[in-house]
Simulated assay, not measured.
Amino acid sequence: MDLLIYSPDIVSVGVVDCFSSLRWRRKYFEPGEFELHCAATADNLETLAQGNIIHRLDRREAGIIEGVVVGESTAGDEEITVTGRMGSCLLCQRIITPTINYSGTVEIGMRKVVSDNAITARPIANLTLGVAQGYPETCAFQATGKNVQTTLTALAKASGFGYIARLDVPGRQWVFEVYKGSDKSVIQTTGPYVLFSDEFGNITGPQYTYNEQAFKNYAYVAGEGEGSARVIIEVDQTGGEPRREMWVDARDLQKGELTDAQYRAQLTQRGLEKLAEAARSESFEAAAVSTANFEYITDWNLGNIVSFEKWGILLNRRITEVEEVYENSVVTITPVCGTPLPETLDLGDDV
């Protein structure tokens, strides 16, 4: 595998065609990350510089080098280790200002957040919008002073969308796009399914995780006002289950010239986003073995809804992460299906 290296201005600076290890972690709701280990040669030290871009012709994502470490490997050889995140991490460099009041489709809302704060105003170099896909899902939100990337992730999780900043080398630009993986679970009937199971012999080292410690399904969202005059709406996602309540302080959402209905819609959206963050942690991950039945990238990919079956458990969930590891001539592909436990568990309610 050749890793094509570009400068921050997307000008070719070299190729890395030999490395000891590459970890390429793709994510659906936020920027993925990578870690590359290779010999500390003069060429690699010059090429793998902070800010440079690692591009693979076989993947839509490209990574931006954010960390560089040079030292001795466990084998005693001099080694360079570079780490970073995928291109959409550029959006963490901007906050939302001035205030956005938006009602419409989620896709156009996400594009507006990027355009207003990183393209038409305070532009991020080489960033542009891709073609809108016309997804019909809607939302209403108000945001100011929020991080652009964090806002995109909240909207994505609440609606089931993914987003990416795709590297367009010929155009020398990063292309922001919103996308939605298709349903390939065993319970849908519109197309072929994808099933990871012992029956198909396409998983090794499976692990099922369930945790509802931080789970909430009913939100009280408090907007502007004081005391009994404070605007409070309720968002119910119990679906017949016992209620598990949370309080959401949305005082930053101001009614201004909005109608009552518009303001309540924005408060509802905030509640949906917070409930999405407080979802049950239920995930299934395993080292997937590519077979003639279900080939990675061709038959299943990041964002698809697929099925995992093991220990009498059938889980039909979206693939939210795929970790690819290339080491010692061995390739391991590990999909994570469902909602994994957050790397940092926050049980604190808004106040």
Rank of each mutant, 00 (worst) to 15 (best):
R25D: 14
K27D: 14
P31W: 07
G32W: 10
F34H: 08
E35V: 10
L36W: 08
L36Q: 11
L36S: 12
H37G: 00
C38L: 10
C38D: 12
T41E: 13
A42G: 05
A42T: 14
D43W: 04
T47P: 01
L48W: 04
A49L: 09
G51W: 05
G51L: 04
N52A: 08
I54N: 06
H55F: 15
D58G: 13
R59W: 07
R59N: 10
R60C: 12
E61N: 15
A62Q: 11
I64P: 06
I65W: 02
I65Q: 00
V68A: 10
V70T: 15
T74H: 11
G76H: 12
D77A: 14
E78R: 13
E78P: 00
E79D: 08
R85P: 00
G87L: 12
L91P: 02
L91W: 06
C92D: 13
I95E: 05
I96H: 01
T97A: 05
T97R: 07
T99I: 09
I100M: 08
I100L: 08
I100N: 02
N101V: 02
Y102F: 14
T105M: 02
T105Y: 03
V106M: 01
V106N: 04
V106Q: 04
G109L: 04
G109R: 00
M110H: 04
R111K: 09
R111V: 03
K112P: 01
S115D: 08
A118P: 00
T120M: 02
A121Q: 06
R122S: 09
I124F: 03
A125D: 11
N126M: 01
L127R: 02
T128H: 00
A132S: 10
Q133T: 04
G134I: 00
Y135S: 06
P136Q: 07
E137Y: 02
E137H: 04
C139Y: 00
A143F: 01
G145E: 05
G145I: 07
